[in-house]
Amino acid sequence: MTPLLQVKDVSKNFGGFMALDGVSVDIAQGERFGLIGPNGSGKTTLINCVSGVLANDSGSIRFDGREISGLPAYQRTRRGIARSFQIPRPFASMSVLENLLVPLEYAGTGKLDEAHEILKQMGLADKAATQSNRLSQVELRKLELARAMAARPRLLISDEAMAGLSSNEISEVLEILFKLNAAGITIVMIEHIMQAVMKFSQRVICLDAGRIICEGTPAAIVAHPEVQRAYLGA
């Protein structure tokens, strides 16, 4: 079976600075995949290239066997790639519910019930009518995930959705992601909170300075000397 996402030799250069330097990784249909690495290692840049927010300079990105690196972001979303943003980007003039209606109408099923269902899942049901610029940081992060889910993705990329959440809330979000995965959605989790990534992921890669320094099971990654040096600071 072809992998759902195939990233091959992808590079991205910001005015001479190599943020991504020949990154290759395959992610299988249904996989729970972890992406770790120190600050500035290129994690967000990689998913910007995958989701179409940035154009990669070279290399190829295939989704479901088809090249997508030339496509505008909205078409990638419609094909099934949804992401959350590390720094929340709510539609600030809209209510929480309306925030979900945008992807629901443009990429998802268009069914209003589904938006309410997702809000309930994410523990935002009582905020449905609240204008999104009144939300707390934690609520904004939940909204990021909720909005991504409303696009009905096949691949959901979560960029540090758990930063700032309490350990109870982290467990809640993890549980939701496990459920989505059980329903067949492939999930890429970018996270600094190690327990969460380790518990969630079946396979992890660690980026450092735009390169993959190692790949493996969570246990193997934690034990890897380069990861220890670059990331865990041991």
Binding site: S51, G52, V53, P72, A73, Y74, Q75, T77, R78, A82, R83, F85, R89, P90, F91, A92, S93, M94, V102, P103, Y106, A107, G108, R147, A150, A151
Partner: peptide, 12 residues
């Protein structure tokens, strides 16, 4: 409100 987020929500 946010053009990047709009595009990533499927808005052309």
């Amino acid at each position: 409100d946010n053009e990047v987020a709009a595009e990533c929500s499927g808005v052309p």
